[in-house]
C-alpha cells in the first residue's frame, strides 16, 4: 500500500468504529487455497479474534486478484480494503485495537524480530515445498491453483506462479537448496520459537500478541494440511510446547468451529 493511501486510511480508520459487516476474503477453502495462503489467512483471523473484532470469512476464487497488494488475505472494512497481517495490524491500531501496547521497547523489538523470523524461514519454506518440490507442485499446488479456471488458462497461470516463486528462491539464494535442507530450516525455526516460548502460555507471557497469531496461523496450517509427505508436519510435531500452544489458541479463540479434525 502506498504511503499516501496508508496515511489516508489510518486517518479515516480512526474516525469510524469497527463495523459489524467486516469481511475477510480468501481463495476457495476446499479445492483452491494453498498451504501458505491458508496460513496467512488463518493468522489474520486469529489476530482479529484476539482483538475481539468480528469478521465474516468469504471465499472467492479470484481473491488474489481482488487484493490491493496481490497477496492473500485482505479485509474489507467500511469503505476500506487492507491486505496482509502487517498493514492490518496497523489498521486496527488506528482504530484503537492493539495487542502489543503493554510491551516495553525491547520486547516490541523482539516481537517484530520473531515475526520476521516466521516470514523469512517458515513462509519461505512453505512456498519452497509448495512450488519447488516437483512432486508437491505436480500433485497438489498446480492442480489446486488452477482449479477454478478452464483448461489452457489454468495451466498457464499455475506455471506462471511456479516460475515466479522459483525466480524468487534463486534471488534469495534458496535456489540450490534441497528439500532436506529446507526441512532442516523449518526445524531450526521451530526450535527457535520453541525456545522462546518455553513454558509460557504466550510468547510474551500472559497476553496474546500479533506474534502469537502469526505463529499459530502457520504452525496450525502445517499440522493440519495433508501434503505428499508428512515430513513438514513431523518437524513441527517434535516440539511439544508448540503443539500445546496451537491447541490452546484453537480452544480459546476458535471454540465455535472445530478446526482440528483429529
Amino acid at each position: 500500500m502506498s504511503l499516501a493511501a496508508e496515511a489516508f486510511v489510518s486517518q479515516m480508520a480512526a474516525a469510524e468504529p469497527w463495523p459489524e459487516n467486516a469481511t475477510l476474503y480468501q481463495p476457495l477453502k476446499d479445492h483452491q487455497i494453498l498451504l501458505s495462503d491458508h496460513a496467512s489467512s488463518l493468522s489474520v483471523q486469529a489476530y482479529l479474534r484476539m482483538c475481539g473484532l468480528p469478521v465474516q470469512v468469504v471465499c472467492r476464487y479470484n481473491a488474489e486478484y481482488m487484493s490491493p497488494s496481490g497477496k492473500i488475505p485482505f479485509i474489507h472494512v467500511g469503505n476500506q480494503v487492507v491486505s496482509e497481517l502487517g498493514p492490518i495490524v496497523q489498521f486496527t491500531k488506528a482504530k484503537g485495537h492493539s495487542l502489543s501496547d503493554s510491551l516495553d521497547d525491547v520486547q516490541r523489538a523482539e516481537m517484530k524480530a520473531y515475526m520476521e523470523l516466521v516470514y523469512n524461514m517458515l513462509l519461505t519454506s512453505e512456498l519452497f515445498v509448495q512450488w519447488c518440490d516437483d512432486a508437491t507442485a505436480a500433485e497438489i499446488s498446480r492442480p489446486r491453483y488452477s482449479s477454478p479456471y478452464s483448461w489452457p488458462l489454468g495451466n498457464i497461470l499455475a506455471y506462471q506462479k511456479q516460475w515466479e516463486v522459483r525466480r524468487k528462491m534463486n534471488a534469495i539464494g534458496w535456489g540450490g537448496k534441497t528439500l532436506e535442507q529446507v526441512y532442516e530450516d523449518v526445524n531450526q525455526c521451530c526450535q527457535a520459537l520453541s525456545q522462546r516460548l518455553g513454558t509460557q502460555p504466550y510468547f510474551f507471557n500472559k497476553q496474546a500478541t500479533e506474534l502469537d497469531a502469526l505463529v499459530f496461523g502457520h504452525l496450525f496450517t502445517i499440522l493440519t494440511t495433508r501434503l505428499t509427505s508428512t515430513e513438514l508436519a513431523e518437524r513441527v510435531k517434535s516440539y511439544s510446547n508448540l503443539l500445546s500452544f496451537c491447541r490452546r489458541i484453537e480452544q480459546i479463540y476458535f471454540d465455535d468451529k472445530k478446526l482440528m479434525k483429529d
Binding site: 517484530k112 520476521e116 523470523l117 524461514m121 531450526q188 526450535q191 527457535a192 520459537l193 525456545q195
Partner: peptide, 9 residues
C-alpha cells in the same frame, strides 16, 4: 533463538 530472529529482521 533471538539471534536467528534478529538476523531475519
Amino acid at each position: 533463538a533471538d539471534s536467528l530472529a534478529f538476523i531475519s529482521l
